[in-house]
Design a protein around this nucleic acid. Sequence first.
DNA 1: TTGTACGCGTTATCAA
DNA 2: TTGATAACGCGTACAA
Lengths: 335, 335
Amino acid sequence: MATITLAQVAKNAGVSTATVSMVLRNRGRISQATRERVLKALDESGYVYNQTAANLRNRRSNQVGLLLHDITNPFYGEMTAGLSHEMERHDLLLFLANSEESGERQQKFVDSLMRNNACGMVLCAARETPTSFYDALKRRNIPAIMVVRPASDPDFDYVGTDNFLGTQMATRHLLSLGHRHIAFIGGNASSGTRAQRIGGFTSTLLAQGISPEPAWLVTSQASQSDGARVAQALLTQYPQITAAVCYQDIVALGVMQALRKMGREVGRDFALVGFDDITEAALVQPALTTVSVAAKEIGRKAGELLYSRIQGNDEPPQRIILPPALVVRESCGFR
Amino acid sequence: MATITLAQVAKNAGVSTATVSMVLRNRGRISQATRERVLKALDESGYVYNQTAANLRNRRSNQVGLLLHDITNPFYGEMTAGLSHEMERHDLLLFLANSEESGERQQKFVDSLMRNNACGMVLCAARETPTSFYDALKRRNIPAIMVVRPASDPDFDYVGTDNFLGTQMATRHLLSLGHRHIAFIGGNASSGTRAQRIGGFTSTLLAQGISPEPAWLVTSQASQSDGARVAQALLTQYPQITAAVCYQDIVALGVMQALRKMGREVGRDFALVGFDDITEAALVQPALTTVSVAAKEIGRKAGELLYSRIQGNDEPPQRIILPPALVVRESCGFR
DNA sequence: TTGTACGCGTTATCAA
DNA sequence: TTGATAACGCGTACAA
């Protein structure tokens, strides 16, 4: 099956390639008669527009990249859906890559995007991303939006949530229910996001005259099983803890497992708040009270901002911080 | 920042573009001395390879598409991770699109892939995809692998799970626990996947001399609430039913809700098996016994097969059916 | 409306 | 043996 080119269509229609190109893109003034001849020829030929050739000629493309570190995390699935939807509205194609927290894979993807002449990217960078990565990215001079995890470099646009406020709300909720022995479970020790969430947590405790207990701030991998593991250890050693703010829903789900195994009933003997509001949060029994960060909305906003940058918006870097919302369900009890 | 082209690098190195190209791609015979001169010039220039130009010239590309109908479903997140990993191994870029079950969006994505000269695609088609979609796709003559949802057309490669065997295993499990009055709950009436699962279910009953009761095979939307609704109706009318195989875990979770509301305890008064092994299955109380389908592996296998097709493998269409596994948890009782 | 140079890397052909 | 020349892939946009 030989590829049909625009030139062949032009010959069939008895016009020049310029004319066909103009008809295809609705540019210039083409007489109605000619246009119809061309449309007919296009129709009969089974012509497929060659975007590659157009991109080469135009020195731009309609392709943007999305780099995540863990696409299996439902939070990022939601975000991706929001972004994907926004990209489609603007006829942009989305390249997806999953760094799996590897700086090497991440770099490889960005290089690949550059080679493919992508017109922009949305990044949730791997954890130990060096400054040099951001420096190199800036030199490339291609729109790049950071999401969820801010870049160490303030020159990049950022869309994320108010982590500090989020855990403040969560912690206040627990305090208002009478809890005084509250743990913070989850997150990676070197995570900036975690530092902010811890900040909201401890500041709220202190505002109530409660001094945070360092041993009750524990880290965990972003998995249910590890959440369960660390919770088990923590709550065995400190049975007086009656509530916890979790770094992530996924960890909270693990904590639930651990509690059940230990014979403590979530929502009655123990109050639990998550963070992210992933789909599962509403489905587990008891349903998880959590801080909603509107993952889909982050994706949508990032897409919007990226599109405006691609269109030439050169205002100073923006930081779009979406307000979190406490979604009260059942895991802190019914009252 | 002007783009540096291969021609400029060639001039800097005092050689022709042909030589630079050959050095870049390790083709042809270039003397060590020349090669080093070129590499030095490349290094100093900050040259970025223009894949678009290369693709145009070569009439191929390194880009493949992945079409899903719901990327927010954790099952597909897992699958995407598996595929993405495999694509990266072969230096292929992955375009992602989310049809949201819209045939229109789906068609738009495929058209876009064609225009962009993608070299292959992996599809989990929208539910009501017309035959004409597959016909058109075949005419395009581009490798396309179906995943999870088989195409109505047998000419396409397919990677999925053994639905028939899956429900057989589930049903055998229930029979071995002594259940004789077993329902099948969930799925869309027009779904081929459901037909297979029903097949595994009924054939296993028949092998035990139990004739399936048509009224006990009920459909449901893929949501917890609808699962609860249909279960409530079914079990009110037929209280003699003591067990059910569900089309999906998500439906099973709804059935659990309904049972609780009706005062029947799952795992003691009623045995329940799901399908998919989604994350929540391990979390609910009691934990759901279910059929696991290894989403990541489906993605990996699809990627492997797609790559071989891109490389020119023209064997007849394959159907890769991954074996499911019964994950026994608590929802059928402890014994 | 058209002719055609152009975007940039590739590779067959040919020269040294 | 090594490397240069130039046609080519295909759509775009400006001058005519």
